[in-house]
Amino acid sequence: MLDIKGSWCQLLTGKGLFLGGSRITKFSSRVAESFNGKEVVLTILLTALMVSCAAAPDRRQIIYEPEIFKEAPMALEKAYSDYWEMRAKKQHANAYSNEVPDFRSAITPEQYSNYLKLFEKAKLAQVEPQGVTCPEEHICFVETALTYILNDKVSDVRYIRDSWEKRNGQWFHRIRNPLIFPGLDKCRKKTEVNKQ
């Protein structure tokens, strides 16, 4: 997997690969917007990222801008990071255990694995969280850009609203695909009753 930390390090250290200059421009713009144009913050962040490159340049993990999760509930950041690392490494069983309990009670690990395989004909190269919103204390959405590579080329960048729910103090991921998993796509399940 081409992890974002590696790619940023390569970019920042002049080894430019992958998405190139336009990528960093886009990222810079987004970060600047999120901080009301305070360019100084961007400078600090980029500097911090360069420092972190030296600390763990070869470690394969999903890395993102921590500020994205600054306002997010505790532990969501780690849950998100762990989950997407499992997805990138095709660790289906581990990822399955991080899905919400009601999903796991309805969908078997094999069915879940079949679903994840749909996404694995292309290689998940980069996971980029872009913002976090939490409409309720126990529900958060992480806007995420997923970059896929097929035949050594970027085949697609998919944007998703990644859903997370907190149960008994632990954050769980929720797959929201109403076509494949109908009835399991809502944070709260709809119940229909015929009128008497």
Partner: peptide, 9 residues
């Protein structure tokens, strides 16, 4: 058509 109700939780 027949009317029915829908609840969430």
């Amino acid at each position: 058509g027949e009317f029915g109700s829908v609840s969430i939780g």
